[in-house]
Computed example of a mutant assay.
Amino acid sequence: MQQVKAVVARAKGAPVEVVTINVPDPGPGEALVKVQACGVCHTDLHYREGGINDDFPFLLGHEAAGVVEAVGEGVTDVAPGDFVVLNWRAVCGECRACKRGEPWYCFATHNATQKMTLAEGEGAGTELTPALGIGAFAEKTLVAAGQCTKVDPSARPAAVGLLGCGVMAGIGAAINTGGVTRGQSVAVIGCGGVGVAAVAGAALAGAGTIIAVDLDPEKLEIARGLGATHTVDSSSTDPVTAIQELTGGFGADVVIEAVGRPETWKQAFYARDLAGTVVLVGVPTPDMKVPDLPLIDVFGRGGALKSSWYGDCLPSRDFPMLVDLYRQGRLDLDAFVTEEIGIDDVEAAFDKMHGGPGQAPVLRSVVVLG
């Protein structure tokens, strides 16, 4: 058992706290990871706001990279000293998806069995719920060994750790879910961290026309830097009309919706070409409904309407490949790191997510721990 500093959300809407927690020694199938960097994702804010569930207190943080410090019995894929990116889908290898050769759809992913707990003060001994089964706003965290993916140790932790969630979700939405191929046209609606990662994914796949859509001109400029060939300011231009005009009047082959709202999903539906693909990667709230669409349009336009969960990624396959592309200068993961902060600055990073007059866009604040 070790005691480390960590960021905890004790109650819905309450400011996060830096506290001391107990981290057990790894048991069978588990790994103890010394966290070097962890991105501040909107999902962490959703946990704090009670938008995921009410299993407080939460140990926040999940977009992380670090070094394996110890492993439990039966662990063979990683060893102490390995540099790893953490993932929240440790595949089981036994469920029906895994057995049919589609482990990226694994229906029985798992996390560490042992629980980390509060070490002192009010609620000492209380079990913590780690965000997405990781809990990496901490000097050390305990995870299932399958949540650790070995990558090139020369890579910058603050950059490659972001593959653990948002960046992988966007890149995977384009490459894995959307199946973008050479010469295709792609439109991305919503240019936050996930959206601009989808732009980067489309560029990696060789798309010919890549259209970025957002209300914020600064986000559009970031998207252009990551591969967008055209931008559309939807505060003043109808995005459906603009996307059609930029694709010969037809619409894009693949449209990726990275906002998670009914109105933008409807825009994506009508902005695609006949037999085109719509990918929903923006996360909606439970109260949102599919917009009113004539069923004849769903039938008559053909193609595919897909949702993308974690970019349909297989971490053991995708993380090392993307880190190698980063090391080769072909994928600018550094562009996603807006600022590096300390463990005491997570609450301030949440505030920056809401934006405000004169504030530059923040793709990711990254907590650097060592």
Rank of each mutant, 00 (worst) to 15 (best):
T117F: 08
E139F: 11
E127L: 01
R48P: 02
T43M: 14
C38I: 08
C41W: 09
H42D: 05
A119N: 07
D44N: 15
K5S: 12
K5Q: 11
T76W: 05
L86S: 09
L128F: 13
T113E: 13
G61K: 03
Q114W: 01
P80K: 09
V7N: 01
E120F: 07
V71K: 03
E120L: 04
A14K: 15
E17R: 11
I52W: 09
V85A: 04
E30D: 14
P15H: 11
W104N: 01
D44H: 10
W88H: 15
E94K: 14
D55G: 07
V16T: 04
R96G: 05
T129E: 13
D82S: 09
G121I: 00
N22L: 11
A138Q: 14
G135T: 04
E69W: 02
H62W: 07
T109M: 12
G101E: 03
E69T: 05
G135M: 07
T117P: 07
V40R: 03
A136K: 11
G133P: 05
N22K: 10
A79R: 08
G61L: 03
C41Y: 11
K140T: 05
D77A: 15
P103Y: 14
V35P: 10
C38R: 00
T129F: 13
T129V: 10
V91K: 07
A138R: 11
G39F: 12
A79K: 11
K140R: 15
F83E: 00
E139K: 12
V16H: 01
C98N: 09
T20F: 02
L128N: 05
Q114Y: 01
V23G: 02
